[in-house]
Amino acid sequence: MDIHVGEIYGKQTTGKFVMYNVLKVSKSVVTLQNIDNPLSLFETTADKLSSSGYVRISQTPYIDLEASTPKRRKAAKKPSRCPLTFDFLEDRADSERPSPIMPDLFTAQS
Rank of each mutant, 00 (worst) to 15 (best):
C82R: 11
D91F: 09
P100C: 07
G6K: 01
R92H: 03
Y9V: 00
T60A: 14
E7K: 01
S28M: 14
A93H: 05
S99Q: 14
P100W: 05
T45C: 01
S28Q: 15
S40E: 12
S68H: 15
D47Q: 10
N21E: 13
Q59P: 03
K77C: 05
L23F: 11
F88Y: 09
S58P: 00
K48C: 08
F106P: 02
Q33N: 10
D87Y: 05
Q12A: 06
L89R: 12
L32D: 02
R73I: 11
I63W: 02
L23Q: 10
V22Q: 01
L84H: 05
K24Y: 13
I8W: 03
I3C: 03
S99R: 14
H4F: 12
T45V: 05
K78T: 13
I63F: 04
N37Q: 11
D94R: 15
N34L: 05
L49F: 04
P83V: 00
Q109M: 10
F17G: 03
V29S: 12
E90N: 03
S80C: 08
V25R: 02
L39K: 14
R81M: 08
Q12M: 06
V25W: 05
H4S: 07
R72M: 13
R81A: 03
Q59W: 05
L89C: 09
L65E: 09
